[in-house]
């Protein structure tokens, strides 16, 4: 067990290092975006003095390295800075009201919404993919196997907005069982929230199922030629039990990794679906902020996305390690 803890600590340290490197990449990339916030907000007719005033006010006149460490320093303490867009620009004419919205305040509700959507999707997609993968492995090369493969491949190959509109057509327009708009707000009851989230969640399920299902199928089939599977068959064990009890536990590591990648995608890559369903998630906020060069928000979103990827992959690593009895129970 001690070796497992050591491995986990190593991975954790590696994850933090990755995050640090990523923060440099994010900061550099965001700073390389053409144009700046002052220019964007003041428009074509802005005087150089006005632009300069805003830049000074926001600290944009500082050299990049100073700004990077200021940003990193406060980010480490949980302060992601203030949003440019929400700031009161009375200041550049001389009277700052002092009211500013922090990035954290702006991101928190959006992030919560995104997590909710991801969680609902995961609750549907993961069990469905595993089940389909197991059944496809069990009835491999049958009509069922092929049908599942074709269907999931079709759905992953279609553009997300197309899937979204097809679902809206069938589940909201022709058979109005679900709302086509996911306007979520605070103070909604859980069931209402769930109902509004269901259509985007189903769309995302269609997008992520193929990966997970195919990996489950492949990982299991890969093991079916091993001697211990033959042994299980020769013990007269039923085919379903052979797969679930004998193949699946040994196939977990690759499956867990693919699940983690897809969950990370659910947190970071769902802009299109959010736009189609007008779902107030973090993806939309991110795109909007890039448009108006609201640098602190963009940086914070990127950092959250990176952290989500790193954290989920770390979790996958740890679970894969734990799924291996050789590591759990050393000699």
């Amino acid at each position: 067990m001690q070796s497992v803890i050591r491995i986990i600590l190593q991975r954790l340290a590696l994850g933090l290092l990755t995050l640090f490197v990523v923060s440099i990449v994010i900061f550099t990339a965001v700073n390389m975006l053409p144009g700046d916030f002052a220019q964007a907000i003041l428009g074509q007719g802005a005087t150089p003095e006005a632009v300069e005033a805003i830049r000074r006010d926001l600290g944009l006149d500082q050299p990049p390295i100073t700004r990077y460490f200021q940003w990193l320093g406060s980010a480490v303490q949980g302060d992601l800075g203030n949003s440019f867009a929400q700031a009161n620009f009375a200041s550049f004419v001389g009277a700052d009201s002092g009211v500013r919205t922090t990035v954290a305040q702006q991101i928190a509700p959006r992030f919560a919404n995104t997590m909710f959507l991801a969680a609902v999707t995961a609750c549907i997609a993961v069990p469905v993919s595993l089940l389909l993968g197991i059944l496809a492995a069990l009835f491999r090369n049958s009509v069922f196997d092929r049908a599942t493969n074709v269907t999931t491949l079709t759905s992953i190959s279609s553009p997300e907005f197309f899937l979204a509109y097809v679902l809206i057509l069938f589940l909201a327009v022709l058979n109005p069982v679900l709302p086509s708009l996911s306007n979520i707000f605070e103070g909604m009851s859980f069931s209402e929230r769930l109902e509004k989230t269901l259509l985007p969640a189903l769309t995302l399920t269609l997008v992520v199922t193929a990966h997970m299902m195919r990996m489950t199928r492949a990982a299991i089939i890969n093991l079916l030629a091993s001697p211990y599977i033959e042994m299980a068959r020769l013990k007269g064990i039923s085919p379903m039990r052979v797969i679930v009890k004998h193949a699946l536990p040994n196939a977990l590591a690759p499956i867990i990794n693919v699940i983690a990648l897809n969950l990370a995608y659910l947190i970071t890559g769902v802009v299109v679906v959010e736009v189609v369903f007008v779902y107030p998630g973090i993806g939309q906020l991110f795109v909007d902020s890039v448009k108006i060069r609201d640098i602190p928000v963009v940086q914070a979103c990127c950092l959250i996305f990176a952290a989500a990827y790193i954290l989920l992959n770390l979790l996958a690593d740890i679970l894969s390690i734990l799924s291996n009895p050789r590591l759990r129970h050393p000699k």
Binding site: P227, M231, L234, I237
Partner: peptide
Amino acid sequence: LGKRIAYVAQSAAASFNPAHKLIDQHTEG
């Protein structure tokens, strides 16, 4: 199979399932 006809394989190391304890594999049949 397993009940009236049983099999002992060449490589026991490969033919025992690495994910389960010996006794659990023993009692399964």
